[in-house]
């Protein structure tokens, strides 16, 4: 199978950066989630936010990050994700690293959701390197029908 991959821009080839941007713009013109896809530059982890019947579902791509190294906190309508991605290899004694693309380090992101979260029923799960937060809206943030009094 023939594949064609653009490599990273270098001092020798400054046009690749521009080509990548053009490619990104072209790709974004044909994407499935029209209007909600915001691009992926300079943040970690990448997240998607969905609305469900009773609240929000936030998913974050955290491959290779053990749940022990992820901290999720919720306060009011603010959700904070922080932690550390540790990738360590012991080099020496016949071991060499030929390629290193996977990044490690600490991360922290905070999100302000449109409504307050019911802390009692918020849940977090981690599967296949994707963290999923299920965040039901607080009762005070849910729509209520108001009875009309007649006199």
């Amino acid at each position: 199978m023939a594949t064609f991959t653009l490599t990273r821009p270098t001092a020798l080839n400054p046009w690749l950066g521009l080509m990548n941007e053009l490619r990104r713009d072209l790709n974004s013109a044909f994407r499935p989630h029209d209007g909600v896809f915001k691009g992926t530059r300079g943040v970690y982890p990448l997240v998607n936010l969905h609305e469900s019947e009773d609240g929000y579902v936030l998913t974050a791509e955290l491959p290779g990050v053990s749940p022990d190294h992820i901290t999720v906190s919720v306060e009011g309508s603010t959700v904070t994700l922080s932690g550390e991605r540790k990738i360590e290899y012991s080099v020496g004694k016949g071991t060499a690293i030929h390629r290193r693309e996977r990044q490690s380090g600490s991360f922290r992101r905070a999100f302000e959701l449109p409504a307050e979260i019911d802390l009692e029923h918020a849940r977090a799960s981690h599967k296949n390197g994707v963290l999923t937060l299920t965040l039901p809206k607080a009762a005070s943030a849910k729509p209520r029908q108001i009875a009309i009094e007649t006199r």
Binding site: V47, N48, L49
Partner: peptide, 23 residues
């Protein structure tokens, strides 16, 4: 790639469903 969770509406997306390939 796993698909978006069912019965939800996506409000904001930084990553997309798709597939991986490398050789």
């Amino acid at each position: 790639l796993a698909q978006t969770p069912p019965n939800v509406r996506t409000l904001y997306a930084e990553y997309r469903d798709g597939s991986y390939f490398r050789e």
